[in-house]
Each structure stands twice: as structure tokens, then as C-alpha cells.
């Protein structure tokens, strides 16, 4: 039995005095695409930030492919690609320079070829040499996805990737996710029910600081799930 790609146990995270996550448990098996639903402020972003090492958990443990994110931080982070709300790019550098910087930090082999490959995948090659400051929101978002995929991470964390992406880019993202199906583990937080369900191998609903509901996507009745989801949205603090 292999270790789960993402294993979160009893995770608690408090901002100020109000806990956002309260003893959250989550396990995502390798190769699974797990889609996480939840209302605004339900803690989706906080959970992803804790897993990516951007936020420090108050209590609990997180392991990526068996690597503890606190004690084996660098090794665990190497396995993670993260794309969130901020593109995390330097505005005054070009897209290419940004990708080179992150590629060197991740010690990607054959960096220039790899940059070319991911940029083609997300159709970003044509604006790689422009400064990020001059790019549109959608272009930055594509570059941000390039950055997350650059080191070919076995685990991909996506926080509401659909915001700011145009239809064309969304289709590209869907293709990237579909190509990695069964190999790359994906944990994606989203509002969008239809798209989310179409992508998922498994779904979960985050409410009250815990995974309140989870199910395999196969055979899941979309209408019933929508009702369940709205039930949690109403109840959530």
C-alpha cells in the first residue's frame, strides 16, 4: 500500500482568535483528481496554503507522498505545484525570466526546453518576452499555471483556477488535467459545480472547518449533489 499523495490529519488553523480549520482530515490517493467545494470563507484557500507550505498549521500534520511538510519541507515542496489567486510573478521581469527564476529554484533539468513545452501547453509562448506588468489578467494566470507545472510536480494544487481564465485557456487547463489523469494528483478548490464535477474523480465539501461530505465522482447524481452542496452553503458559518 502506497502512502496517500496528500494526507492531512487533524489540521487546525486559526486566524486571529477564530479557527478557520478545525481538525480537518483529508486523504487524496495518488493520481486522483479531488475537487473541493465550499462557500466563501469556508477555508479552501487556507487549506491549500497550509498544504503548499505558505501557511503554518497551528495543529495537525500534512504529508505529501509520505513527506511531512514541516520536517521535510523542501522535499515535500518539490513535489507540489501551486496556482492560487495571486499569479506569484515578478511584474518587472518578463514571463520567460520569471519561469527561468522558478525553474532554477526547482533545479529543473533541461530548463529552456521544459519552459518551451509548458508554455506551448498553455499557449503562452507568444507573450513570454513581455514584462508581466504589461500582460492581461488572463495571460498572467496562464503564466502562473506554467510556473506551477514547470517542475512537473506529482501533486498539483489549484485554487479556483477558473477565475480570470478565458474559455480558451480553461479548455487548455482541462486538457492538461485530462492528460495527467491517473498520474498527477490534483487537489482543486472551486465554486463552479458543473466544471468541477466534470473534472473530478472524487469530490468533497468543506464546511465548518472540516470535510463535511465526500464521495467518489463516478455514479454521483449531479442534482442530488447540488442539493447537498447548497444545504451546506446555507448551514455554514
Amino acid at each position: 500500500m502506497t502512502a496517500p499523495a496528500i494526507a492531512v490529519t487533524a489540521l487546525t488553523k486559526t486566524f486571529s482568535v477564530r479557527p478557520v480549520l478545525r481538525g480537518l482530515d483529508l486523504a487524496v490517493v495518488p493520481g486522483q483528481r479531488y475537487v473541493l467545494f465550499g462557500g466563501n470563507g469556508s477555508g479552501k484557500t487556507t487549506l491549500l496554503k497550509c498544504i503548499a507550505g505558505l501557511a503554518r498549521p497551528d495543529e495537525g500534520a500534512i504529508a505529501i507522498a509520505g513527506l511531512d511538510t514541516r520536517r521535510q519541507g523542501p522535499a515535500a515542496r518539490r513535489a507540489i505545484g501551486f496556482a492560487g489567486h495571486d499569479p506569484l510573478l515578478y511584474q518587472d521581469l518578463t514571463g520567460l525570466e520569471n519561469l527561468r527564476f522558478y525553474g532554477r529554484m526547482f533545479q529543473v533539468d533541461g530548463l529552456e526546453d521544459r519552459i518551451g513545452a509548458v508554455a506551448d501547453q498553455l499557449d503562452a509562448s507568444r507573450f513570454l518576452n513581455a514584462r508581466v506588468r504589461t500582460l492581461s489578467h488572463g495571460m498572467r494566470k496562464r503564466l502562473s499555471l506554467c510556473r506551477a507545472l514547470l517542475h512537473d510536480p506529482p501533486v498539483l494544487l489549484l485554487d479556483e483556477p477558473e477565475t480570470g481564465l478565458d474559455e480558451e485557456a480553461l479548455a487548455l487547463l482541462d486538457r492538461v488535467l485530462a492528460e495527467g489523469a491517473g498520474q498527477r494528483t490534483v487537489l482543486m478548490a472551486t465554486h463552479g459545480l458543473e466544471r468541477g464535477l466534470a473534472q473530478a474523480d472524487a469530490v468533497g465539501i468543506l464546511s465548518g472547518g472540516r470535510i463535511a461530505y465526500q464521495a467518489q465522482a463516478k455514479g454521483l447524481d449531479a442534482g442530488a449533489f447540488r442539493q447537498t452542496y447548497h444545504g451546506y452553503l446555507g448551514a455554514a458559518p
Partner: peptide
């Protein structure tokens, strides 16, 4: 500069201590 670029988080994602 780092903060305006939102890139402190980008540095934190890197596989370095």
C-alpha cells in the same frame, strides 16, 4: 517590491529551506 509582486509566497513555494 516582493510584496507588491505577491512573490514572497512564490519564494516560499520553492523547495529550499
Amino acid at each position: 517590491l516582493e510584496k507588491e509582486n505577491g512573490s514572497l509566497d512564490g519564494l516560499l513555494l520553492c523547495p529550499v529551506s
